[in-house]
Design a binder for these strands. Structure first.
Lengths: 106, 106
DNA sequence: TTATCATATAACAATATGCTTATATAAGCA
DNA sequence: TGCTTATATAAGCATATTGTTATATGATAA
């Protein structure tokens, strides 16, 4: 199986984004389930703007994508990202989420 | 094969360190060969203190180790780091170094 | 409509980061 | 010893990062 090759510059920018506890955990969550902003605010116990700003960075890098459903915007990992397999490889080292947080908005 | 499980906090701090083009490339180099500081200064075309400061961060995290040989201090990846397999997995996505830089000091 | 809820964005402040220059330390050599 | 080379550390500065509060936007519901 041929492994993707990632340029150092590009890899560094992805690692920098994931090099933040909140964003890393967020990516891991969004890699398993879609989540609306309010669920993330609830989960991380952070202000809504703080969460939105983290999501913005992940979105700008193409790591997550959004889908509007009625008044909510759901985010999820962008599995079409050209380096998704790399990201997946990193996230695979994280343990499973402890409490399987229930969907809040829906 | 059982894969190491890494706490989000700890993973984030490693990713943050590797989320810098210089340190990432440096880790990849040191994972293949020992290098003295002067070689890194030469390679990265950066000031000696700048290189030393990056090395310090990597060393503080236990990612690299140093060995003095006469007047030179050689750095190399610390393969005994408890999360070395994780770091290795990340670095494995980088392409091979183009020009196989020759040893400068020795 | 207008009010409300969900989210984004702007402006700002505190702190962190990554250089720079200057200086300290430690080893080798004349 | 005193000079030189290799490296580390300290101090300072510019910029980046990450949160805060205030406000804008967009959708739903009354």
């Amino acid at each position: 199986m041929q492994q993707t090759v990632v340029r150092a510059e590009e890899m560094a920018s992805i690692l920098k984004l994931l090099g933040d506890r909140t964003r890393l955990t967020m990516m891991a969550m969004l890699n398993k389930n879609d989540r609306c902003v309010c669920e993330l605010v609830e989960f991380f116990q952070m202000s809504q703007p703080a969460i939105s700003q983290h999501l913005r960075k992940l979105k700008d890098a193409g790591l997550v994508k959004e889908t509007r459903k009625a008044q909510w915007i759901f985010y999820s990992a962008n599995k079409d990202h050209s380096l998704y397999s790399f990201i997946q490889a990193i996230l695979s080292y994280l343990p499973e989420e402890r409490k399987e947080t229930t969907q809040l908005c829906e």
